[in-house]
Each structure stands twice: as C-alpha cells, then as structure tokens.
Amino acid sequence: MLEIKNVRYLYPDGTRALEDISINFPREHILALLGRSGSGKTTLLKCIGRFLKVERGKILLGGRSVYDLSEIDLRRSIGIVFQDLYLFPHLRVIDNMTLAPRLVMGEDSKQAKDTAMVTLKKLGIDDIWDKYPSQISGGQAQRVAIARALVLRPKYLLLDEPTSALDVDTTDEFGRWLVRLKEETTFIIVSHDVLFCEKTATSGALIEEGRIVSRGSIDNILKKTKR
C-alpha cells in the first residue's frame, strides 16, 4: 500500500505547489489523478518517485518512508514513465528494455532479453524489438516506455499523461492493456483526459491548485465538477 499523508511541496521560488495532500493507493487498481495543467498533479507524481523532496508530510510504501528506501529498492517498487517518455535514442527497443534489468537487477543478457520479449508481446509490439526509437510511432514509443518500466516488475507504475501522444483508437487500446496488467502492477495515472480515465481508472482524485478537492470513483468526481 502506498500512502500519502499531509504532503506539502513548495517550488524553489517559494510558491506553493502542493498543500495537505493525503491519499492512499491500494494495490490492483488503476488510479487517476485528474486536474488542469498547472494544478500540481505531475509535481505529486515526482514527489512519489522521489525526484522532488516534500516540504512536509509523509510518503509511505508498505509503512516505510520512501526517503528511507535504498535507490534500488525504491526503483524496483515504484516505476515512472514521464510524459516525454525519454527512450534512449542510441539503443534499440530491446536494449532500452534490458539495460536496467542487467545493470540494476543483475540479470544475465539472455534472461533479460527473454523477459523483455514476453513483455513486448503482451503489449503487442514484439515486432519492433530491433528498431531504434526514431524508427517507431508515437503509440509504439508510449508502449515501449511502459514495457521498459514493467520489466523491473514494480508494484506501482506512475504514468504522466500517457495518452497525450495517442489518437483515439490507440488510446482505447492502451486503456485495455492497462486493465489487463493491473493484477501485477498498480497504475497511478496523471491525466487531463477525462474520457480515458472514465473508461480505465477504478478510482481517482481531482487536484486543483495543489489541493485534492474531490475523490472517489471517476463518475462521482465528474458529477461533482459538473464536467
């Protein structure tokens, strides 16, 4: 269980980004953090992923503060896919995916490659394993980025605006992948794409000006905000 308690975060210039955020993320769910751009949802994601240090409050994973975890333990528990994906352009898809398992988890080359191929197949893109990132489409790149995070088998995977580069059909298909994968990995999605969240997420929270203003099922949230 991932718990966030009374978190506050200030931007370096002192303006408030997050205030008194408390939320729990139970396993086997797809949770959506909704809100306009600038509302603080990506900042929250970066706090959870320990890319930013909170000013006040706690982020607990299985009861332990994420700041107390070793780098490796943290990265194996919580994965993150940024909005810009940041695939490694000099590495083929397969090498993008096997790098961390080999270097961080100490898997051998063959083992890492097998896992990567299985994951690619699950996402329906095993035919592009030997392509470079510049040679694949935006939708494929999105799935490669997620696959690259999934091979580390994180308990939680944070996705920042995962559908921004996808068209309607691919977005739907992508949503179905997530639903299928949620048994193994809990997804926390930051998005302003309400339609996608409505179809995919099991519950969520709405953030406005750094505060959670509403939570529960996506339907509920949407009703409260009058769309």
């Binding site: 780098e71 990265r75 993150i80 940024f82 940041y86 490694f88 995070a149 580390l152």
Partner: peptide, 11 residues
Amino acid sequence: GQILAAKALGL
C-alpha cells in the same frame, strides 16, 4: 530527461 529516465530505472 535522459538522466531522469535513467534514474527512474534505478541506474
């Protein structure tokens, strides 16, 4: 962002 991504993967 490449450094961020590498860090996110535990490198």
